[in-house]
Design a protein around this nucleic acid. Sequence first.
DNA 1: ATGGCTGGGTCTCCCAGA
Length: 255
Amino acid sequence: MKVVSWNVNSLRVRLPQVLQLIQQASPDVIALQETKLQNQDFPRDELESAGYRLVFNGQRTYNGVALMSRTEPADIITDIPGLDDPQRRLAGATIDGIRFINVYVPNGQALDSDKYQYKLRWLEAFTDLLSEEMAAHKKLLLMGDFNIAPEDQDVYDPAAWQGQVLVSDAERRALKKIMALGLQDTFRLFPQEDSRFSWWDYRAGAFPRNRGLRIDLMLASAEMAELCQAADIDMDSRGHDRPSDHALISADFSS
DNA sequence: ATGGCTGGGTCTCCCAGA
C-alpha cells in the first residue's frame, strides 16, 4: 500500500500536479492539506474519475483537508470533539482496515501570537482524540502538515531557529506527547541523508539552497510501523513548475 | 537586510503562510 501526504497550498492551483501524481504513482491513499476550497468547489468529478473515493473538509481561503482512497472510507471524522473550531484541519477514516488521520496543524505564527495559543490548544484537544483513536485501532497512520520540526536535525539552521515558532519547546513537547501514545516517525525508520526537509520558503532561493524544515510527517502505530517498507520525501514535487512550498511525503506498507 | 515569494480575497493592496 502506497500512502502519500501533501500540503498543496491551494488545490485549485495544484490540481494538475495531483492528477499527474495519480497517473505516475497511483497511491492507494492520498492526504491533502491546505486545499483552500469550500466543499462545493472541491474538484469531485476530476478526482472521482481518476479512481478515488473522497473525504473532504474544506473552507474558503484558508485550511481545508482531504483524504482520498481507492477503496471506500468508513467511520469518517472531520472534527475534534470538545473543540469548537470553525477551521477545517482534520479528515479521518478507516480504509482497508487501517485508520488514517490527516491533519493540518495550525501554524502558530509567532510565540507571542494568539495563534500560537490556539495551536497549543488545538494540539491538546487533538491528542485527546488521538488517544481514543489509538485505543480503538491497532493499525493507525497519522499524517499531514504538523507545523513542528521534531528535532534540530529537521531544521537547516537550528541556531537561527532556536525558540521560534515551529521548533519551540512547547510545540515539540506537544508532538512528543502525541508520539508517546505509540507512534513512530516513518521517515526515521530508515537511514536518511542529513539535511532532508519537507518545506522551503518560497523566498530568497530557500529551495535551491536547501534552507528548509521537515514539518510534514507520517507517524505510524507499532503495528503499522512493522509493515512499513519505505518512507521518502519527493523532492521533484517541490522542484516542479509552480510548486507548492511543501514537498510530498510518502510511505509504503506491506499488506 | 525581519526582507524575500505565493495564493486568495476585501482584488493592484492586504493578510497569512512557515
